[in-house]
Write a protein that binds this DNA or RNA. Structure first.
Lengths: 148, 148
DNA sequence: TTAAAAATTTTGAATCAATCAAAATTATTT
DNA sequence: AAATAATTTTGATTGATTCAAAATTTTTAA
């Protein structure tokens, strides 16, 4: 987020409310958080803050493009303030940790083999794998292969 | 799905139950369905079928790799029987329709700019855009730009 | 500066998607 | 055919999210 949150909100004709500003600050400090985590952080700062306001604001801010939503399998929706650069994500299959990785190109950075007549505007990429921490845990504890 | 469902289940040491077979058939006929839709189709065939069994089976079949789960934003989890070929998806921002598109390569077909020490095994790609139907609807009804 | 209007928050309820767990039933193995 | 294991059914519950009315806050206009 390169400009002040207040200015960003003004540019989108959104009121500068305490909850909204606290949410943006919380999300800037804790990227890839879900609504419950954001609520916890905001609630520590504003005791009267409600979960409903968090959901309302997340929906509004995503709609405006101020906040980005991602939805990895196995997790609730996650949010981040890093927007506009078409970056991608890496998610650990073991600990569910989420990390950013820059994109090579502008959106859409890829084209489908068959676009089915779609006008494509974005290629959302999630890389799945195992993070260094979980690789170390896995090796030191021996393999726990799920039989299937 | 190139081999018979019965054989596939046997290969994975799974019982051949009526609900399970009906689910696979329903999903083969209706790819990219959510659990509710799958339940509707199965329920038409087996009146006593329960939603719990649908969820249990989906979880089991996804874990075995017989069924694939995708989770586009704004929708519940969707499922499909087309597995093992690392294909990608195109989702319409307007009608939420989901379509397959072949992958250029084997998994992982892409590499992140910075892998953060991860061992990457898959690049999940969702192309977002507007489908031909919704493009036509949009144009004939005039633009409804959301101010934001 | 004050009042009005609009936006947002709070509050409590509800819905949706999915899970939990015990009992019953079905499929497989012996 | 009986025993065992897997699965389904049933009803309850949880987590994630939405709904809606009333209250409060922010912005705008006078």
């Amino acid at each position: 987020m390169k400009i002040a949150p207040e200015e960003l909100l003004r540019q989108h004709n959104l009121s500068l409310t305490a909850v909204r500003l606290a949410l943006l600050e919380a999300l800037h400090a804790n990227p890839h958080s879900d609504a419950a985590r954001i609520f916890d952080v905001v609630h520590n700062k504003i005791a009267a803050a409600s979960k409903q306001a968090i959901y309302n604001n997340l929906n509004t801010l995503v709609e405006c493009g101020i906040v980005r939503e991602i939805k990895p399998k196995g997790q609730a929706s996650l949010y981040e303030t890093r927007t506009g650069d078409n970056h991608h994500h890496i998610v650990c299959r073991s600990c569910a940790g989420v990390f950013d990785t820059d994109c090579h190109d502008c959106a859409p950075c890829l084209t489908p083999k068959d676009s089915h007549g779609f006008v494509i505007d974005e290629a959302e990429v999630i890389f799945w794998g195992v993070c260094p921490s979980c690789q170390n845990n896995h090796n030191s504890k021996g393999k726990n292969n799920a039989e299937c």
